[in-house]
């Protein structure tokens, strides 16, 4: 291989090392950035939805109490609005699931809410249930509390997911930075080896050739040099050798 190609390959390797490390770092960082966006957005939406679900649930409870007090129109109106708000927010929370625990909690909330709704859907005003707070306590209030707790657990789970992800970010950042560090260290090591080879196979033979030529000029010592490589330096040495031997023959003649 000729010198030009050898040197070019050296620089090419150096550039490739840094380029690939750079590409990997950029890829990893953009992956982190996308995931952070996704996690934050989805969890933020989910946390908001759970808050609205609790508000809707409390309004439903007020609606039920109004029905118990005999206010049919107002009670049903409040219940209808709150039910619709709850279902919308439950659907929003269901669309932003990341964790398996979240999925299980949403299923549980949905099941509990269906059971809760089944009870207050039947007529209350004008039946034995009207003004019957014992019936409310026995059949509705504990379900309301259980449902409320499940929704709060979902909020906590979403918050924990964000917290855990923040911890994982440290690892992911290290994974993104490491290729750069390794490429820099490898490039440094490579530079030492490269400069050693340049010195040993290019600079040193040229110095030797120069010295041998000077020795020939000054002391007429024979031009003998050993070049390991088969490149331009070897051709140069051979040519000088031929030139000197030609010159010596002419001088003898």
């Amino acid at each position: 291989m000729n010198i030009r190609l050898k040197i070019l390959s050296g620089f090419l390797i150096l550039v490739l090392m840094l380029l690939v490390a750079g590409v990997i770092s950029i890829y990893e960082f953009s992956k982190i950035s996308n995931k952070v966006d996704k996690i934050l957005n989805e969890n933020y939406v989910s946390i908001n939805a759970t808050k609205s679900m609790i508000t809707a649930l409390e309004r439903e409870d007020s609606g039920i109490l109004l029905l118990l007090l005999g206010s049919w129109d107002e009670g049903r109106k409040v219940l209808k609005k709150a039910d619709s708000a709850f279902i919308i927010n439950l659907s929003i929370a269901s669309r932003n699931l990341i964790d398996e625990k979240e999925i299980a909690l949403i299923k549980n909330i949905s099941k509990q809410y269906t059971e809760y709704k089944k009870i207050w859907k039947h007529p209350i005003v004008g039946t034995k249930k009207e003004h019957n707070f014992e019936w409310y306590n026995k059949n509705l209030h504990h379900r309301f509390l259980m449902l409320s707790n499940s929704i709060q657990e979902l909020t906590m789970t979403n918050q924990n997911i964000i917290l855990n992800y923040a911890k994982h970010l440290k690892d992911k950042a290290q994974r993104a930075v490491m290729p750069g560090i390794i490429a820099i260290v490898s490039a440094l090591l490579f530079s030492f080896i490269f400069s050693f080879f340049i010195h040993f196979y290019i600079a040193n033979p040229i110095s030797k050739i120069t010295k041998r030529i000077n020795d020939f000029i000054l002391y007429k010592t024979p031009f003998e040099i050993n070049i390991d490589t088969k490149d331009e330096i070897k051709s140069l040495a051979d040519s000088i050798k031929e030139l000197i031997s030609g010159y010596s023959k002419n001088a003898i003649k």
């Binding site: 390959s9 390797i13 090392m17 390794i182 490579f190 080896i193 490589t229």
Partner: peptide, 22 residues
């Protein structure tokens, strides 16, 4: 990616002496 990058670094560092040293 870690395995591919390590393989790439090993290849580049390994191939270079073969280019220079006869």
């Amino acid at each position: 990616i870690p395995l591919l990058f390590s393989s790439f670094i090993a290849f580049l560092l390994g191939i270079f002496p073969l280019i220079f040293v006869p």
